[in-house]
Simulated scan of single mutants.
Amino acid sequence: MDVVDRYFSAYNAHDLDELMGCYCAKPVAVGPGGPAEGRSDVASYHTAIWQAFPDVHVTVLQKVVDGEATAVTAVGTGRHTGPFPLTTGDVLQSTGRYVSVRCCWFFTVQDGLIVNQQVFYDQLELYLQLGLPLSRLGP
Rank of each mutant, 00 (worst) to 15 (best):
M1Q: 02
M1I: 02
V3S: 08
R6S: 04
A10Q: 06
N12G: 05
A13P: 09
H14R: 08
D15W: 10
M20R: 05
G21R: 03
C24E: 10
C24V: 12
P27T: 06
G31W: 05
G33M: 15
A36G: 10
A36K: 10
E37P: 12
R39G: 13
R39A: 14
R39Q: 14
R39T: 15
S40K: 15
D41H: 11
V42F: 05
S44H: 12
W50P: 12
W50S: 14
D55E: 13
V56I: 12
V60M: 01
Q62C: 04
Q62I: 01
V64T: 12
V65Y: 01
T70I: 15
G76Q: 11
T77W: 11
H80A: 06
T81G: 10
T81V: 08
P83Q: 05
P85F: 00
D90H: 09
L92V: 03
S94H: 09
G96S: 13
V101S: 00
C103Q: 14
W105C: 04
T108N: 07
Q110S: 15
I114T: 08
V115C: 00
N116M: 15
Q117H: 06
V119N: 10
F120T: 12
Y121L: 11
Q123A: 09
E125I: 10
L128S: 06
L130R: 07
G131D: 10
P133W: 01
L137I: 02
